[in-house]
Write a protein that binds this DNA or RNA. Sequence first.
DNA 1: GCCACCGGTGGC
DNA 2: GCCACCGGTGGC
Length: 317
Amino acid sequence: MTENNFHDSSFLSQGDNTSQDFIDVSSSSSSSDDESSEDENNQSGDASKQLVLYDPAANGTLVPAPEPATPFQQHPRRQGFPISNQQSPRVLPSVGAFTVQCANCFKWRLIPTKEKYEEIREHILEQPFYCETAREWRPDISCDDPADISQDGSRLWAIDKPNIAQPPPGWQRLLRIRGEGSTKFADVYYVAPSGKRLRSMVEVQKYLLEHPEYVSNGVTMSQFSFQIPKPLQENYVRKRPARLLASCNGNERLEPDLVRPLAWAGPDESPDLQLGMPRLPPPCVPDPINRPAKKRAKKSPPKEMYSSDPRASIDSS
DNA sequence: GCCACCGGTGGC
DNA sequence: GCCACCGGTGGC
């Protein structure tokens, strides 16, 4: 029931680095490597290499990797997920493949490069993707051919947001998938031609103000979007414990049964609960003492500095 | 010292 | 619940 039947694009990632060759992200460990996977795109135009699908045979641990989101319409049957969680603690998944669903037959088609994928995604709503579209790189493909990939439990799928503008020429949009159990599924970063990494619209705007040359060359805020895909696997992302409520209802016991194991899988200690209260339920006042004082100074002012709606940032102007 | 990654909050 | 933002910091 979710938003599935609408074709858009998605990617999948997978944590198993054993995968292949080309992406080899880090094969060993360093999480930083995954970066390399994205690098490939970096190589400007080399369209020849691509596709990083993972090799199921190589598994050892099946850590699903997030892949580009696609529109999947088939109902989410993720029961098949072998739980990737517990084991391999920190293998960061990386995007393993980009796939887009045909608006006609609903089969998933792998997209050869990230750039091509971004190009398709940019106008997916106005220009739906069809198997025939893939003829650009697969001359004879049609809806009669079997799907390139399907949602089995071997990968982590995530649905991407449609119509995200392609990054400006020379810039790169990086999607970093976070580990399971994190508070967010992923982060988007833009890397300027200078190598500067920008992680929010605020930072982009500031950067452009400091480097007017980009603006003069046509770079605009509408070319940026920090929207992240949504994982199909429920509980991949840790849910936030009901805001303040928790402290207010300190006495409202948290029965273990009520708590989703997964959610608490993390080794994190949750000090609040313990510190918070011996036995008497304090009033609903956030105790400054126990609190790490993490308040963020709210300095950010007006939000309308840039006017661009990420969702519909297609300014075809 | 840097920075990629994670945590977590404010605001809707 | 989701999204945007950004502080903190472990690991290099």
